[in-house]
Nucleic acid binder design. Sequence first.
DNA 1: CGTGTGTGTCTTTTT
DNA 2: GACACACACG
Length: 811
Amino acid sequence: MADPGGYDDSFDDPFQPNVARQDTSPVPPRPQGGIAARAMAARQAPDYLAGLNPEQALAVETTEGPVLVLAGAGTGKTRVLTTRIAHILATGRARPSEILAVTFTNKAAREMKERIAGFVGGNVEGMAWLGTFHSICVKILRRHAELVGLKSSFSILDTDDQIRLIKQIIQAEGLDDKRWTAKAFAGILDGWKNRALTPDQVPEGEARAFANGKGRRLYEEYQERLSILNAADFGDLLLHVITLFKTQPDLLKDYQRRFRYMLVDEYQDTNIAQYLWLRLLAQGNPNVCCVGDDDQSIYGWRGAEVDNILRFEHDFKGATVVRLERNYRSTSHILASASHLISFNEGRLGKTLFTDFEEPDHDLVSVASVWDSEEEARTIGDEIEALQAKGHSLNGMAVLVRASFQMREFEERFVTLGLNYRVIGGPRFYERMEIRDALAYFRCVAQPADDLAFERIVNTPKRGLGDATLKLVHGLARAERIPLTQAAQQLIDTEELKPKPRNSLKTVLDNFERWRRQLEQLKHTELAEIILDESGYTEMWRLDRSAEAPGRLDNLKELIRSMEEFESMAGFLEHISLVMDRDSADASDAVSIMTLHSAKGLEFDTVFLPGWEEGLFPHQRSLDESGRAGLEEERRLAYVGITRAKRRAKLYFASNRRIHGLWQSTVPSRFLDELPADHVEIAEPSSNYGGYAGGGYGPSRFDTNDPFERGSYSTPGWQRAQRAKKSNDGFSEGGRGYQSARMKRQGPLTIEGELVAKSVSETPSAYSLGERVFHIKFGYGAITAIEGNKLTVDFEKAGMKKVIDSFVERH
DNA sequence: CGTGTGTGTCTTTTT
DNA sequence: GACACACACG
């Protein structure tokens, strides 16, 4: 895949790279052709440097001072990162333990370790500080926990624990937990922690917005409870370390001295807390290298700040900026399409991908119109089979959807076709109920004060310990500020409880006592089995005759098997709380189905991109909640989707889609209008099933196959984008258009005064009860109920259905 | 305490 | 239209 040395960029290439950019200031600009660079590389050219292109080499060899590597999709980002580390090590600039290398996911960290091992040999274990933000923070925090009010053995709460804890607090505050849900507050809390705000730093307005002004109070209460529980949530891991660095200057200096070189992967995904964390470390030491791509920032909704990468040069003075624009993945058509699309975004650092991979027989990016999601699945299924028949492997194909509800239809279709597929994403192993229950048992044994775990399983399996009993235990624990187990212990010595629950509770506590004693004597896997058996947990599932029960028992076995890899129970639990990913290494040949989000970082020969319709992609909710920023993020998502493809990218839009149970007619995504006509073809209809010039559903520019008649640049979508480019007001918080759209929630949503997508019509239906209508899918019927623009129709063949009025015609 | 019915929600996901 | 969750009932 690597294309060594081709520096001779032809000058008529529209994607001409600009190697000598002025912003690479600390390093003298180099002339085109990079003879100097080539000479440099040839000078002593250690093995690992061979085959890097000049920009990559610059990114690797500029070891001193801040460096921002803007790595477009498929430009060899990981390679640069790992080679850079190898280079630092090989030239003796630092020892493995002096390099800090941060990633977002465990998967990325693992891959990086493996690739560095390829260069350096077995020495990777010395890379103690290569890991995710969170795992590195835990490591630091375990050493200095007492400085932030924790014990070194603190446990890490996952999202589930977090929500249950918040719920308790909301109830304890006497709030209506339906009006103010724990989930909603968890989201707000996350937002605060992503911005590194401690309770006292939360802006007044935001603090007041939740629970009648109790937002701040709840946050304080929550932190208080965490500290009693000796626990930290994911956000705390970073936040506590920031506090540590800020309050302990000596300690900070220590770490600044230790980390002689710092690298951050996927910098566009960092949130404010992570940025602050990095900046604290970089204050003592400017050797920070951040790698990322602003055009692939798709996690704004969970706190990522594109601004971090946009402002890098400003934040880290004297930064060298290296652009990697030579793409080794995709055909020129795919790159041109993606580039043209993304150019509609403002606020980019600006890169233009190019490639030498250009042949006349390369497929254009295709766009196809289908009638509905069913036809979409059928068409894609057929195309997959056709490719397979030509000898293409299924592993090289993927269906990338915007939202997971789209997956089902593909699965169903692939099942009927007998097409092998795999779904990536979805519920993860460690999030399954039975696994979490089992882990709760283990946690109770290993960490007696783990209230959340205790609560989870005191009455699982059922032991007659209901609300009444638990309330009592809770009350005592709260009053005495002691862990639940301790409170329970005290209660069974009193007459407070009725005999039955009292005995039950005693049995549970005795069990835990015994298991704790066995903790030291038995192998942890053996003990795990004993716990699950003696607690009656496995028995519970054996007796359960539901369809999932056998699978759950299998999962439990799998869990115990996976514990083998760890030395002790504590080691296992530590790992598990941070590493929630599962490795489903499936060797069989299969089409992948996944969301666009989970496709980031992957590549496939052929990529199918269904559902390019207004409202779905760009998603209405993204537009509603984040306006222009939301739209741009959606566009980046589209960019990510297209750039996953190596040879073929095939886009689809359906004229009709069922959303929330209702059939809606849809408008093609504006992103389709933003593709360059020269590189796109309108696919022939795969069947004569309809959908073209579709009877009265409004013309689309895709109704014609003539590329000239399509007139991309006069469509509403294009004009909309042009207007968007000019004005950047009108959609800011409080902007008039935004608020009015917000306020009448029933009305259609507007952006820049344009109708974006009709989800609910504001005008009442023009139909009346009893009227006879025709629906293209359901046939003839009579209206039995009207609700705004939604009709309930008793169809002669299809029976009662709810439909949108614009979807039927009088008859 | 367990089961049934009603209600509300319905983007994206990692740690 | 489907599913999860909460509350009320037996």
